[in-house]
Amino acid sequence: MDRTRGTAATPKSLWPESPWRAAGRRLVERPSASVGLVVLITLLFCVPTAPLLGNGPLERALAAGQGSLSFALLGGLLGAAAGLAWGIAATALGPRAERSLMGLAERLAGLPLALALPLAAGLAGRGPGVLAPAAALTAAPFIALVTRAELRALLRREFLAAAQAAGVPPGRILRRHLIPNAALPLAAAAWTALPRALAAESFAGLLGLGLPGSVPSWGAALAAAVRAGDPAALAAPALLLALSLWALHAVGDGLRAAAASGETPRTAGGGRP
Protein backbone atom coordinates (compact mmCIF):
# COMPACT_ATOMS: atom_id res chain seq x y z
CA MET A 1 0.00 0.00 0.00
CA ASP A 2 1.28 3.41 -0.80
CA ARG A 3 -0.68 6.22 0.71
CA THR A 4 0.37 9.09 -1.48
CA ARG A 5 -1.85 11.58 0.16
CA GLY A 6 -0.09 14.60 -1.27
CA THR A 7 -1.10 13.90 -4.81
CA ALA A 8 -4.47 12.28 -4.29
CA ALA A 9 -6.07 14.45 -1.65
CA THR A 10 -7.96 17.64 -2.29
CA PRO A 11 -6.27 20.88 -1.19
CA LYS A 12 -8.83 21.37 1.58
CA SER A 13 -7.84 18.19 3.33
CA LEU A 14 -4.17 18.60 2.50
CA TRP A 15 -3.84 21.89 4.34
CA PRO A 16 -6.55 21.73 6.96
CA GLU A 17 -6.96 24.42 9.54
CA SER A 18 -5.04 24.35 12.78
CA PRO A 19 -6.98 23.21 15.86
CA TRP A 20 -7.15 26.78 17.18
CA ARG A 21 -8.60 28.06 13.96
CA ALA A 22 -11.05 25.15 13.91
CA ALA A 23 -12.14 26.02 17.45
CA GLY A 24 -12.65 29.65 16.42
CA ARG A 25 -14.73 28.49 13.48
CA ARG A 26 -16.87 26.26 15.71
CA LEU A 27 -17.45 29.26 18.00
CA VAL A 28 -18.44 31.62 15.22
CA GLU A 29 -20.49 29.02 13.37
CA ARG A 30 -22.97 28.86 16.24
CA PRO A 31 -25.51 31.59 15.44
CA SER A 32 -26.31 32.24 19.10
CA ALA A 33 -22.64 32.54 20.01
CA SER A 34 -21.82 34.99 17.24
CA VAL A 35 -24.91 37.10 17.97
CA GLY A 36 -23.99 36.99 21.66
CA LEU A 37 -20.48 38.16 20.85
CA VAL A 38 -21.84 41.09 18.81
CA VAL A 39 -24.24 42.01 21.62
CA LEU A 40 -21.45 41.89 24.21
CA ILE A 41 -19.12 44.03 22.12
CA THR A 42 -21.91 46.55 21.48
CA LEU A 43 -22.70 46.72 25.19
CA LEU A 44 -19.03 47.13 26.09
CA PHE A 45 -18.87 50.00 23.64
CA CYS A 46 -22.18 51.70 24.53
CA VAL A 47 -22.20 51.39 28.31
CA PRO A 48 -19.14 53.58 29.04
CA THR A 49 -20.18 56.15 26.44
CA ALA A 50 -23.86 56.26 27.45
CA PRO A 51 -23.68 59.63 29.29
CA LEU A 52 -22.49 61.19 26.03
CA LEU A 53 -25.40 59.78 24.08
CA GLY A 54 -28.19 61.64 25.83
CA ASN A 55 -30.43 61.49 28.88
CA GLY A 56 -33.38 59.31 27.87
CA PRO A 57 -34.48 56.23 29.89
CA LEU A 58 -32.43 53.91 27.66
CA GLU A 59 -29.28 56.00 28.03
CA ARG A 60 -29.75 56.15 31.80
CA ALA A 61 -30.18 52.38 31.92
CA LEU A 62 -27.08 51.92 29.74
CA ALA A 63 -25.12 54.15 32.09
CA ALA A 64 -26.31 52.06 35.04
CA GLY A 65 -24.63 49.11 33.37
CA GLN A 66 -21.21 50.57 34.16
CA GLY A 67 -21.32 49.37 37.74
CA SER A 68 -22.97 46.06 36.92
CA LEU A 69 -20.62 45.09 34.12
CA SER A 70 -17.42 46.18 35.83
CA PHE A 71 -18.47 44.36 38.97
CA ALA A 72 -19.33 41.28 36.91
CA LEU A 73 -15.86 41.44 35.38
CA LEU A 74 -14.16 41.86 38.77
CA GLY A 75 -16.19 39.20 40.57
CA GLY A 76 -16.12 36.92 37.55
CA LEU A 77 -12.35 37.07 37.17
CA LEU A 78 -11.91 36.48 40.87
CA GLY A 79 -14.37 33.55 40.80
CA ALA A 80 -12.78 32.07 37.69
CA ALA A 81 -9.31 32.28 39.20
CA ALA A 82 -10.50 30.76 42.47
CA GLY A 83 -12.41 27.98 40.72
CA LEU A 84 -9.54 27.10 38.40
CA ALA A 85 -7.04 27.10 41.25
CA TRP A 86 -9.42 24.94 43.29
CA GLY A 87 -9.85 22.39 40.51
CA ILE A 88 -6.16 22.33 39.61
CA ALA A 89 -5.16 21.92 43.24
CA ALA A 90 -7.59 19.03 43.62
CA THR A 91 -6.08 17.32 40.58
CA ALA A 92 -2.46 17.99 41.49
CA LEU A 93 -2.36 17.40 45.24
CA GLY A 94 -3.21 13.73 45.34
CA PRO A 95 -6.28 11.66 46.14
CA ARG A 96 -6.79 12.75 49.73
CA ALA A 97 -6.74 16.48 48.94
CA GLU A 98 -8.92 15.78 45.92
CA ARG A 99 -11.54 14.04 48.02
CA SER A 100 -11.78 16.81 50.57
CA LEU A 101 -11.59 19.71 48.09
CA MET A 102 -14.13 18.21 45.73
CA GLY A 103 -16.38 17.14 48.58
CA LEU A 104 -16.43 20.77 49.71
CA ALA A 105 -17.14 21.99 46.18
CA GLU A 106 -20.00 19.51 45.76
CA ARG A 107 -21.56 20.50 49.06
CA LEU A 108 -21.26 24.21 48.26
CA ALA A 109 -22.65 23.73 44.76
CA GLY A 110 -25.77 22.29 46.33
CA LEU A 111 -26.45 25.47 48.33
CA PRO A 112 -28.36 28.51 46.99
CA LEU A 113 -25.15 30.45 46.52
CA ALA A 114 -26.88 33.49 44.98
CA LEU A 115 -27.83 34.39 48.56
CA ALA A 116 -24.15 34.76 49.51
CA LEU A 117 -23.99 38.26 48.07
CA PRO A 118 -26.92 39.87 49.94
CA LEU A 119 -25.88 37.94 53.04
CA ALA A 120 -22.33 39.26 52.89
CA ALA A 121 -23.59 42.78 52.18
CA GLY A 122 -25.97 42.61 55.10
CA LEU A 123 -23.33 41.27 57.51
CA ALA A 124 -20.17 43.08 56.41
CA GLY A 125 -21.21 46.11 54.44
CA ARG A 126 -21.62 46.85 50.76
CA GLY A 127 -18.07 47.70 49.68
CA PRO A 128 -16.68 45.99 46.58
CA GLY A 129 -14.03 44.41 48.83
CA VAL A 130 -16.78 42.35 50.45
CA LEU A 131 -19.05 41.86 47.47
CA ALA A 132 -16.44 40.75 44.94
CA PRO A 133 -15.26 37.72 46.98
CA ALA A 134 -18.89 36.86 47.70
CA ALA A 135 -19.66 36.97 43.96
CA ALA A 136 -16.58 34.85 43.33
CA LEU A 137 -17.89 32.30 45.81
CA THR A 138 -21.14 31.93 43.87
CA ALA A 139 -19.21 30.74 40.82
CA ALA A 140 -16.04 29.06 42.10
CA PRO A 141 -17.40 25.65 43.23
CA PHE A 142 -19.02 24.97 39.87
CA ILE A 143 -15.88 25.94 37.99
CA ALA A 144 -13.80 23.79 40.31
CA LEU A 145 -15.98 20.74 39.60
CA VAL A 146 -15.81 21.23 35.84
CA THR A 147 -12.07 21.94 35.95
CA ARG A 148 -11.36 18.76 37.85
CA ALA A 149 -13.48 16.69 35.45
CA GLU A 150 -11.80 18.21 32.39
CA LEU A 151 -8.31 17.71 33.79
CA ARG A 152 -9.00 14.12 34.76
CA ALA A 153 -10.25 13.35 31.27
CA LEU A 154 -7.24 15.11 29.78
CA LEU A 155 -4.73 13.27 31.96
CA ARG A 156 -6.07 9.94 30.69
CA ARG A 157 -5.52 10.85 27.05
CA GLU A 158 -3.13 8.60 25.24
CA PHE A 159 -0.95 11.29 23.71
CA LEU A 160 0.45 12.07 27.14
CA ALA A 161 1.66 8.48 27.42
CA ALA A 162 3.06 8.80 23.91
CA ALA A 163 4.95 11.92 24.91
CA GLN A 164 6.30 10.07 27.92
CA ALA A 165 7.38 7.21 25.68
CA ALA A 166 9.11 9.81 23.53
CA GLY A 167 11.19 10.74 26.55
CA VAL A 168 9.75 14.23 26.93
CA PRO A 169 10.46 15.41 30.49
CA PRO A 170 7.42 16.09 32.70
CA GLY A 171 7.91 19.86 32.72
CA ARG A 172 7.86 20.01 28.99
CA ILE A 173 4.86 17.66 28.75
CA LEU A 174 3.05 20.11 30.99
CA ARG A 175 4.08 23.12 28.92
CA ARG A 176 3.74 21.74 25.42
CA HIS A 177 0.97 19.19 25.66
CA LEU A 178 -1.09 19.62 28.79
CA ILE A 179 -1.57 23.38 28.97
CA PRO A 180 -2.40 23.97 25.27
CA ASN A 181 -4.94 21.17 25.33
CA ALA A 182 -6.45 22.27 28.64
CA ALA A 183 -6.67 25.96 27.76
CA LEU A 184 -9.89 25.99 25.79
CA PRO A 185 -12.00 23.67 27.97
CA LEU A 186 -10.86 25.51 31.08
CA ALA A 187 -11.58 28.89 29.50
CA ALA A 188 -15.08 27.66 28.69
CA ALA A 189 -15.51 26.56 32.30
CA ALA A 190 -14.13 29.82 33.68
CA TRP A 191 -16.36 31.93 31.47
CA THR A 192 -19.44 30.81 33.44
CA ALA A 193 -18.22 32.97 36.34
CA LEU A 194 -19.11 36.14 34.44
CA PRO A 195 -22.89 35.59 34.06
CA ARG A 196 -23.04 34.14 37.59
CA ALA A 197 -21.41 37.22 39.12
CA LEU A 198 -23.62 39.56 37.09
CA ALA A 199 -26.80 37.70 38.06
CA ALA A 200 -25.82 37.51 41.73
CA GLU A 201 -25.01 41.21 41.96
CA SER A 202 -28.23 42.22 40.17
CA PHE A 203 -30.25 40.02 42.50
CA ALA A 204 -28.59 41.59 45.53
CA GLY A 205 -29.10 45.07 44.06
CA LEU A 206 -32.78 44.34 43.56
CA LEU A 207 -33.00 43.54 47.26
CA GLY A 208 -31.21 46.78 48.06
CA LEU A 209 -28.14 44.90 49.26
CA GLY A 210 -25.97 45.23 46.17
CA LEU A 211 -23.30 47.76 45.30
CA PRO A 212 -23.35 51.02 47.31
CA GLY A 213 -25.76 53.69 46.05
CA SER A 214 -23.00 55.83 44.59
CA VAL A 215 -22.22 53.12 42.04
CA PRO A 216 -24.89 52.79 39.33
CA SER A 217 -26.10 49.27 38.65
CA TRP A 218 -28.97 47.53 36.91
CA GLY A 219 -30.14 45.82 40.06
CA ALA A 220 -30.35 49.12 41.91
CA ALA A 221 -32.06 50.80 38.91
CA LEU A 222 -34.64 48.01 38.88
CA ALA A 223 -35.22 48.37 42.60
CA ALA A 224 -35.67 52.15 42.23
CA ALA A 225 -38.15 51.67 39.38
CA VAL A 226 -40.11 49.12 41.40
CA ARG A 227 -40.22 51.49 44.37
CA ALA A 228 -41.35 54.37 42.14
CA GLY A 229 -43.92 52.14 40.39
CA ASP A 230 -42.65 53.28 37.01
CA PRO A 231 -42.98 50.51 34.36
CA ALA A 232 -41.22 52.56 31.69
CA ALA A 233 -38.15 52.98 33.91
CA LEU A 234 -38.32 49.26 34.75
CA ALA A 235 -38.29 48.07 31.16
CA ALA A 236 -34.94 49.44 30.01
CA PRO A 237 -32.63 48.06 32.77
CA ALA A 238 -34.55 44.77 32.88
CA LEU A 239 -34.13 44.38 29.13
CA LEU A 240 -30.44 45.26 29.19
CA LEU A 241 -29.78 42.90 32.11
CA ALA A 242 -31.60 40.05 30.37
CA LEU A 243 -29.80 40.78 27.11
CA SER A 244 -26.33 40.80 28.66
CA LEU A 245 -27.04 37.62 30.66
CA TRP A 246 -28.25 35.89 27.51
CA ALA A 247 -25.22 37.10 25.54
CA LEU A 248 -22.81 35.88 28.22
CA HIS A 249 -24.45 32.47 28.32
CA ALA A 250 -24.55 32.23 24.53
CA VAL A 251 -20.84 32.98 24.25
CA GLY A 252 -20.19 30.46 27.04
CA ASP A 253 -22.09 27.79 25.11
CA GLY A 254 -20.09 28.69 22.02
CA LEU A 255 -16.83 28.31 23.95
CA ARG A 256 -17.92 24.89 25.15
CA ALA A 257 -18.76 23.88 21.60
CA ALA A 258 -15.40 25.20 20.46
CA ALA A 259 -13.62 23.25 23.17
CA ALA A 260 -15.36 20.00 22.26
CA SER A 261 -12.87 18.35 19.95
CA GLY A 262 -13.92 18.33 16.35
CA GLU A 263 -13.39 14.60 15.90
CA THR A 264 -15.90 12.94 13.69
CA PRO A 265 -17.55 10.08 15.56
CA ARG A 266 -16.31 6.70 14.42
CA THR A 267 -18.86 4.34 12.99
CA ALA A 268 -18.87 1.28 15.16
CA GLY A 269 -21.20 -1.23 13.61
CA GLY A 270 -20.60 -0.66 9.95
CA GLY A 271 -22.14 1.84 7.60
CA ARG A 272 -25.49 2.58 9.05
CA PRO A 273 -27.27 5.39 7.23
Partner: peptide, 8 residues
Protein backbone atom coordinates in the same frame (compact mmCIF):
# COMPACT_ATOMS: atom_id res chain seq x y z
CA UNK B 1 -5.05 8.76 16.49
CA UNK B 2 -5.47 9.39 20.21
CA UNK B 3 -1.73 8.94 20.73
CA UNK B 4 -1.05 12.05 18.67
CA UNK B 5 -1.45 15.43 20.37
CA UNK B 6 -4.37 17.10 18.54
CA UNK B 7 -2.81 20.52 19.10
CA UNK B 8 0.48 19.92 17.29
Amino acid sequence: AAALDPGM
